[in-house]
Nucleic acid binder design. Sequence first.
DNA 1: GTGAAAGCGCTAACAG
DNA 2: CTGTTAGCGCTTTCAC
Lengths: 325, 325
Amino acid sequence: MTATLGAVAKQAGVSVSTASRAFNEPGRLSPATVDRVVAAARELGYQPNHAARSLATGRRGSIALVVPDVANPVFASFVKAAQAQGWQQRQAVLLADTDESPELERRLVERLVPQVDGIVLCSSRLDLAELVSLDAGTRVVLVNREVPQLPSVLVDVSTGIRQAVEHLHALGHRRLAYVQGHPLSWSNSERLRLITEHAGRLGLALEVLNPQSPTYDGGIAAAASIRACGATAVVTYNDLVALGAMAQLTAMGVTVPGDVSVIGVDDIAMATMSVPPCTTISVPMDRAGRVSIEVMQGLLGGHQAEPPLVRLETQLKVRGSTGPA
Amino acid sequence: MTATLGAVAKQAGVSVSTASRAFNEPGRLSPATVDRVVAAARELGYQPNHAARSLATGRRGSIALVVPDVANPVFASFVKAAQAQGWQQRQAVLLADTDESPELERRLVERLVPQVDGIVLCSSRLDLAELVSLDAGTRVVLVNREVPQLPSVLVDVSTGIRQAVEHLHALGHRRLAYVQGHPLSWSNSERLRLITEHAGRLGLALEVLNPQSPTYDGGIAAAASIRACGATAVVTYNDLVALGAMAQLTAMGVTVPGDVSVIGVDDIAMATMSVPPCTTISVPMDRAGRVSIEVMQGLLGGHQAEPPLVRLETQLKVRGSTGPA
DNA sequence: GTGAAAGCGCTAACAG
DNA sequence: CTGTTAGCGCTTTCAC
């Protein structure tokens, strides 16, 4: 057991409350006293007991981060940034990985909520009703999911998608395919909506394809249908799918970007390493991580009138996987 | 505020202590009473207050996971597995990312320790003395770092490295290079030691190269010195470096594996996606994650006499990046 | 089998 | 500026 505040107080010859104040509101104490307490504290190797403080204040000093899959580079960078930001704000970060399962997400959230000050849900698949009711219990911040009632930080792919479709159109492509992600996810709906809109505007034919999963393997599996549908250009839900599709297309003897152009979304490191490197829409997940924690902090501090809504801009990064129609 | 145990007790018509027991030692209560309490609890939506429980028991119910870089696929999969395992064991997981900085690691650990039951340090770079003194305060489990006094789970690359060197030797290579990682890290020392040993045994010339960092970019930068040193085969500290080196080598007109063979370590997903796919030593970091949490649990439960030492086997996975000398 | 009561270590009024 | 005093919600002897 580590030294308690009481021990420190005694050692410094003051009362517990004074000792407590030396750490929490040093301004209200005489500098001399503060020094004395601080000295006593380090002498005894005092470490505040977090649980006791929580019990007394009602504050937990930690927030939960819920992501679908930490092993996915996109979320990993998100988590990294969020953790760093949380640390600066003196909040510990409880990590939870839902393994892409809404069911697990529900259970995790349920157990996490009572022990944190707030929770950041990344690409949540919970029902709207659950989300809203959750908000009654804790502070909630949504990332990559738009719900009017809740604060959220969104990656706004509108610019990126527009640029992507225009880029393909400019190259002379007229038949486009979109290999979508999980149909019910907010991100996918957005992407699909935008692609449909711009394809329509520019007069491109659009085919929507379903991969088994939004992963590299999903991309491999999607290659056949890409070729089958006759599109000369394809936008995928994310880079992983794009990469898988490119690899398999190449293996099938279809050249990229000679026969078909491919564009992914996320701008993960691997997108630059493939051959050819993958054109992609750059999604600032590290910024999303930082921002989401900032928003959370805002919520924990002063309560703002309406839920903040942060949109993060995206941009097309042209690389070798797109070319002449 | 959520309902308290007191409220549940009242609702069930029992005392607080009985209510408490209904959850903690139901065996000591009449089944009927347990049912009554449980019913009352769910009726009121009771959620135990973690802080209060901690204060009373001294147990925190959470463990910290400290890794150098969550964005590194190797650690990401480690974290994912550890988190999943922790969840099953009903331990929340506090995540900390040291950003490869021993300095930050020290500060993080210091702050984390008082609020957890135990801490898992992955590829720690702390001084031996710090590590040992740390152990006095909490339960500590080391991953990828061997310290006699402490329990650790190690990835044992001996088999993998031996197979790698033998494989290269069998292909006819006689001049080998090792592009090392952080020189002071335990993993690197191990790898270097083993490569030196086997190269010597088989009569291979060995050159040790220093990349700027154990990353993809580090690999790119190392390509020049690889060619310069005249080696026909190279083993790198990890896959990221291998991939970077392969890409740059190719860009420089050196063919892989025609002119030089490359072998990495980690078996990250990307290793299969490169062109050619990268031969690598498979390191089971997901198992390491699970096992480390199990070891931690063992420590938290019964205190064993001597610190457990778990070694995880590795194996060479031959792919396209190695070939004729 | 169940209840009463004493804290766990800290904070936050409320006095002085 | 500093001390006194209640708790925060739960676990845990110790009785009955």
